[in-house]
Design a protein around this nucleic acid. Structure first.
Lengths: 205, 205
DNA sequence: GCCAGCATTTTGACACTGTCAAGATTGGTT
DNA sequence: AACCAATCTTGACAGTGTCAAAATGCTGGC
């Protein structure tokens, strides 16, 4: 559907143009709309207007495609972190923005978030090298940020890594329970996480 | 494999005995060993020694079976809560036991935990009435316990329900990240959650 | 200008899955 | 002894992921 592929539109189906990207974005859209469970390679192929097995030239198998989509998700989240780091807010508000941003990212595209942290992909055997790399670097990035906030006395605790693990766990858990509809009467996940803020912030001396 | 079914063992395959229970426990075992993804009704049927579609007399479809297994999980967890409530520990240690117990429950059978909180089942359309009831009552139960701990000044916060949501979110998130292997270098999930304890406990006056 | 070789896509095929409709078997009731 | 209802099986179908082999079109060397 991109410009290039539109120009290439001839009566034959061969040499589609940039099929890899087209497949990725189409799959991402389908997942966002209908959920991960109901994405099949065949429906995806039909949507893109290509034969059932065309994807196998760019992805080892279905899991490989899902890993690529998840990796894109991590890249997007890392860009958010970059943007956050480079603005001029005071630390306290930066921390708040980090937390709110995490919730916004998770809830604005729940299916993608589910894909990034759902069981299926993680357990080693199924995880692509690309996904492994980008996710690890993202984790490391988050740990460093929280380490910093703790080193300046903003965040409680005496063990930086441990604090990062706990904070991330909390964000992830609240995001997931919210997405799954467990907090039935809560309008926005941000409400909960804002209430949780004081638990992480060190008391003013 | 139970005593009853063993007695019923004749050359015909009809009237198996208590097939519903047999299916449930066999499926639970298979999930615990090989994971949710790799459970198929047909393999289950073969394992139990019954035809492919025998399960359809007791369960509307595959999802219905999974819901029943998840409901069992909630029942087991609720029994743990009962046991905890009825012992004589001081409140502070009870709270600690609650948190440790949650982690033990989640990590001792990760696949079942995944099934209970995985995406697949929750979103309304797929959720059985039985599962809806037992899970809601379990949630309510947990909220009440935390409400109590807060009312006696043990747990921080001024909004009981909100505190319960946050604490549960934290436990769930840490459990899930641990199960998914994100905390690569952490031996037991209990380590993390014990470090997080001070955040929830109100400072002594 | 043409043709070989290569990248790309398709077709055919297979095993596996969930699920339905129709038939087979059996224990219990009258 | 005969029927009934519960229980289980067989047959069948559409959908899935995936592989091997064939088909197609682009591109560089002659």
């Amino acid at each position: 559907m991109t410009l290039q592929t539109a120009l290439k539109k001839n009566n034959s189906h061969y040499h589609h143009g940039n099929l890899r990207q087209t497949l990725l974005s189409a799959a991402t859209h389908m997942i966002a709309e209908k959920g991960i469970e109901s994405l099949s390679l065949r429906k995806l192929a039909e949507k893109v207007g290509v034969s059932r097995t065309a994807a196998y030239h760019y992805f080892k198998d279905k899991n490989d495609l899902l890993c690529a989509i998840a990796a894109n998700g991590f890249r997007r989240w890392q860009q958010s972190l970059d943007q956050l780091s480079s603005n001029q807010l005071p630390d306290r508000q930066k921390f708040e923005q980090y937390i709110l941003g995490y919730m916004a990212f998770a809830t604005s595209n729940p299916e993608e978030y589910e894909l990034m942290f759902g069981r299926c992909i993680w357990k080693q055997s199924k995880c692509t090298n690309e996904l492994q790399d980008i996710s690890h670097s993202t984790f490391q990035r988050q740990v460093e940020m929280i380490e910093y906030w703790q080193s300046i006395g903003l965040v409680v605790g005496d063990n930086p890594v441990r604090s990062a693990q706990i904070i991330w766990g909390t964000l992830h858990g609240i995001a997931k329970l919210f997405i799954d509809g467990v907090y039935a009467d809560v309008g926005r996940a941000e409400e909960i996480v804002i209430s949780a803020l004081p638990m992480f912030i060190a008391p003013k001396v």
